[in-house]
Design a protein around this nucleic acid. Structure first.
Lengths: 147, 147
DNA sequence: CGCCAATCCTTGAATATTCAATATTCTCAA
DNA sequence: TTGAGAATATTGAATATTCAAGGATTGGCG
């Protein structure tokens, strides 16, 4: 029943490869939609996480949006220049920087959400709602078991 | 039944995000294993595709290993320096370059396969063989429906 | 045939990411 | 209380990726 690939199996039978392939394709599609607003996928993730209105530290944010710390710092620099987000030093722990979303960021985030939702609707249409939900459930469980 | 996320849903409910997260985690684990041989995941993919012994053009290879053409060209440059693969101009169509794996590349590929298989066995152990197979099936089907 | 557009790969410049080191602040135990 | 070590974020240099352009070859149509 449990059946990992043999050593001479084609690469397409490896879970790691299938995940990379699916991720690449779905991400490419999403990127294409978000390009209407000239925003990379990572910035949408950042805005979405911050749109709860709470302050999030850089470390917390880096984990949440799947970016390394230095990469996030530089991306946040750009977003601050674009006045989408702003930094506030955490008064409780001054090593930390709390990130907040601006009004402009919120407005952009709403437009991006709408693009992202429309993409997922498109996937559900061609792939099926049942498959989509089942896939999400399995992915969540995989992520859970990997930690 | 079909239930795409609402616009205010957390990002963790988006398929695109779950795929990115799972891919990142599994890839990180695989990278860690392959680092015993000092080889990035992409080079393992290249060697694995070429290990059928046939010549593969750069374009074909780029698609198969999920890399853009210029990135592949530069990675192949390094692998040629390491004498893992070699280039041959396609006699049928001299615009093309056919890539072949060397004996040294084959030997390395065998060691890498063993590391990769052991990773997937580890996943099957903690995640379950049934879930793994079901997830693979769904991913294949998603990739199919996205093209 | 001869030419023009398309295909294939590579290159170089611009951009982005990563690694290692640094600065700052906090924690906690001596 | 203070000093060593941990945690947090940023920076700069090294590395890698991407974008746009170029050179070579082919296919096909006038």
């Amino acid at each position: 029943m449990a059946k990992p690939p043999k050593e001479n199996s084609p690469i397409t039978e490896h879970l790691a490869y299938l995940l990379a392939q699916a991720n690449r394709e779905i991400n490419r599609q999403l990127e294409l939609r978000l390009s209407k607003e000239g925003v990379p996928v990572e910035q949408w993730r950042i805005l979405k996480v911050l749109s709860d209105g709470n302050g999030h530290s850089m470390g917390e944010l880096a984990d949440a949006v799947l970016l390394n710390h230095p990469t996030l710092t530089k991306m946040i620099d750009r977003m601050v220049s674009d006045t989408l987000v702003y930094r506030v030093q955490d008064p409780k722990d001054r090593r930390k920087v709390l990130m907040f979303i601006s009004d402009r960021g919120k407005a952009l985030c709403r437009r991006l959400n709408s693009l992202a939702v429309s993409q997922e609707e498109h996937i559900v249409e061609s792939y099926g709602g049942k498959s989509t939900n089942e896939l999400k459930r399995l992915l969540e469980s995989l992520i859970g078991s990997a930690n």
